[in-house]
Structures are given as structure tokens and as C-alpha cells.
Simulated assay, not measured.
Amino acid sequence: MESVLLGSVLSALATGFGALPVLVMKNATHKWRDILLAFAAGIMVAASTFSLIPQALDMSGIGVLTAGIALGTLTLLFLERFVPHLDLDHSKTFQGIDAKAILIIAAITLHNLPEGLAVGVSYATEDSSLGGLIAFSIGLQNAPEGLLVALFLVNQKMNRMKAFFIATMTGAVEIITSLGGYMLTSYVKNLVPYGLSFAAGAMLFIVYKELIPESHGDGHARSATLSFITGLLVMIYLIQIFG
């Protein structure tokens, strides 16, 4: 229980770590943001395809894997459909701190819930290293998102410290779903392969729908592609060493 708590807290608070620069800066270069997003995408693809999916197959079969991936994908699709994940860096729709700005923060918070679930389920497996690897991959994805949220709020004339705090809290909600996923799958062992497959489907959806398009949206496709491949290889290396 201590390991899942530590892993989920570190992964969730990576959002706040990513938001730290907002305390001293107003803007982040598109290039480095895109490189970091693509690197996180590579990490998450490797974690899904070389850790989560093989683990789920070993514990069950292709039927359970398919059902879990489908459920994870549909869950994110549902959130995308009814609570759109807005592109904070490009959106020009919202110009003030009002109910609509609050909606943006709520949307990002809801999208973080399945990521916390992925961390918790991973810690519930017999593979003691899997949880740490998934927490690491989710944390890398959280960092640039935290920076974008904080920059958005600062650009809307919000106090820097308050913007940092709100950005951190959007990621902190992952701790709740992480602990919930861990406890549920720990007591109901048959749910573990479903949970792993669900996490894989959710992570792959985030990569293809969010991270890759965002990392290619500002003319840095080549740098982002190289960063993606680097992230993929780094995670494979970590899986080989600690997996």
C-alpha cells in the first residue's frame, strides 16, 4: 500500500512540477513543449505495448484483453465527447476567468482520472516493478500538461501562485482513482487483467488523440518524431532493466 501511495502521489504531482516554471516565466517555447509531449508519448506507447498488454495476456487471454482495451478506449471517448479536452495552447475561445475557464479546468481534471486508475491497477499485479514504470510514464505526460494549464491561467491575469496551485490540483485527483483502482483489483484478482487492459487502452487513446497531434501542431514534427522514438527506446530499456 505504501508503494502505490508513493507512486501515485509522485505521478500526480508531476503536474505541479511541470507547472513550476510558471512562477518565473510567462511563456514556454513550442519546440520544447512538443519535444516533451512526444517523449511522453513514446514512453506511454512502450509501457502499454511491452508491459501492460503482455501482462494482461499472461494472466488471461485475448478476449479479456480486447474487452479491457475497448472499455478503456470507450471511457476516454466518452469523456472526449461530453467533456472535450481543449487545446489550451491554441484555443482562442476563452478569454476570461469565468465559468467557461472553470469548465476547461474541470475537463482536464476529469481526463486525469483514468490515468490515476492505470497507475493503481499496475501496482496491484504480482510484478512489483510494473507500477513504478507506469507511474513514471504517466508522470512524464502530466508535466507538460501542468505547465500548459498554469500558463493558460496566468495569461488570463490570474496570480502566478494561484495558477500553480490550481494546475497542481488538476493532477492531484489522480491519487484518488489510483488508490481506488489498486484496492479494487487487489481484492478482486480476476479484475487485474481487465484493469491492465483498460489502462493500456486509455493510455494509447491519450497518445494518439492528444499527445501526438499536439506535438506536431507547431511545425516541429521532425524533432517530435525523434523525441517519440527516444522515449519509446528509453522505456523499453527501463522495462528490460526493471521489468
Rank of each mutant, 00 (worst) to 15 (best):
T125F: 01
W32K: 03
A46D: 03
Q95V: 15
K209L: 08
K31L: 15
P193G: 08
G219S: 05
S8K: 00
K31S: 08
E115A: 03
V121K: 00
M25Y: 14
V119Q: 00
G61W: 15
A124V: 04
L184Y: 10
S227V: 09
A56E: 02
G231L: 01
G139C: 08
L13W: 07
W32A: 10
F82I: 13
A70N: 12
S137Y: 01
G219A: 12
L196K: 00
L77M: 14
L130P: 00
L204E: 00
G131P: 00
G195W: 05
G7L: 01
I241S: 04
L232H: 01
P84A: 14
L211T: 08
G132M: 00
A47M: 11
S186C: 10
A221I: 11
G96W: 13
Y182I: 07
N112K: 07
V9I: 10
N27R: 09
T168H: 08
L147Q: 00
I176F: 11
A107C: 11
S186R: 07
G131T: 01
E145M: 00
K162R: 10
L52N: 04
L117P: 01
Y182Q: 10
D89V: 15
T168I: 10
M59P: 01
E210D: 06
L37C: 06
T73H: 13
A202R: 01
M44C: 08
L37V: 07
F165V: 09
T29H: 12
T185G: 03
A12K: 07
I239P: 03
H220Q: 11
A221T: 05
L77K: 13
A202H: 04
S48T: 11
G18L: 09
Y237T: 15
V4R: 03
I102V: 15
V154N: 02
G146V: 03
R160V: 11
H30R: 12
N155C: 08
M1S: 12
T109A: 11
T93Q: 15
N27F: 13
I53L: 14
F17Q: 06
T225D: 12
E210G: 04
V188C: 06
L151D: 05
K100R: 13
I62K: 15
R222S: 09
V149W: 01
K157E: 05
S197W: 02
T29I: 12
T93H: 14
L5Q: 05
S186E: 13
A28Q: 05
R222F: 09
S48Q: 04
D87W: 15
